[in-house]
Computed example of a mutant assay.
Amino acid sequence: MNRTLIEDTVADVLARSNSKIEVVLENLFPGKRLVGGKYCLDDNRITLYLGVLEEQCRLLFGSLDSFEEYVRVVLAHELGHANDPELEYLSERLVKIRGKLSRTRVSLRLEENAWRYADSLVRMENPAVFDTIMGKSLSSYYEVLPEYAELMATTA
């Protein structure tokens, strides 16, 4: 990974979005999940975990040939969270909701909101890569929700 190239990619996406949000580049997510990027509402900061993003890119595409684009898409998605007018409301709902299906529906709405923003920002550059990443990201929600059972059956 060329860190300068990644920093330039981050600067380009931030410039396109007219965002002044701080983006921190780290290697690994401090948990057991395979999280490549995270927006923190409390400090209005995005952290990209480059080691995890490399692993995700290899798993999804079989190589790092699309790594720069992968970073671009994940950053645009995290900017989508940062710019989501429903983020605070939906985050508060997540804290209060107990049922797995209800929590999954609210989480899916958060993710779809972020993906819509990312779509408007970077999808046109490489629709195939964008759609693959977005599809993989959303599939774990669709697999749980009964209203998406037919969709999942047709894509399996």
Rank of each mutant, 00 (worst) to 15 (best):
residue 148 Y to R: 03
residue 103 R to E: 13
residue 155 T to F: 04
residue 65 D to Q: 13
residue 121 L to G: 01
residue 71 V to Y: 08
residue 85 P to R: 08
residue 42 D to Y: 09
residue 141 Y to I: 04
residue 127 P to I: 03
residue 84 D to C: 14
residue 1 M to G: 02
residue 104 T to Y: 06
residue 45 R to F: 00
residue 5 L to R: 10
residue 134 M to A: 10
residue 29 F to L: 04
residue 30 P to R: 06
residue 116 R to D: 13
residue 91 S to E: 15
residue 94 L to M: 15
residue 132 T to C: 01
residue 13 V to F: 07
residue 127 P to W: 10
residue 145 L to N: 05
residue 150 E to V: 05
residue 86 E to V: 01
residue 151 L to W: 04
residue 108 L to F: 13
residue 85 P to I: 06
residue 94 L to C: 14
residue 68 E to D: 14
residue 48 L to G: 09
residue 148 Y to G: 04
residue 6 I to Y: 00
residue 92 E to G: 15
residue 90 L to M: 11
residue 114 A to S: 15
residue 131 D to R: 04
residue 36 G to I: 07
residue 66 S to G: 01
residue 44 N to Y: 08
residue 130 F to G: 00
residue 107 S to D: 06
residue 112 E to L: 15
residue 154 T to G: 00
residue 54 E to R: 13
residue 115 W to P: 12
residue 15 A to C: 02
residue 24 V to D: 06
residue 38 K to F: 04
residue 45 R to G: 03
residue 43 D to M: 03
residue 19 S to D: 10
residue 93 R to H: 09
residue 136 K to W: 01
residue 30 P to K: 04
residue 43 D to Q: 02
residue 51 G to H: 06
residue 88 E to Q: 14
residue 55 E to R: 08
residue 14 L to I: 08
residue 95 V to K: 15
residue 17 S to I: 06
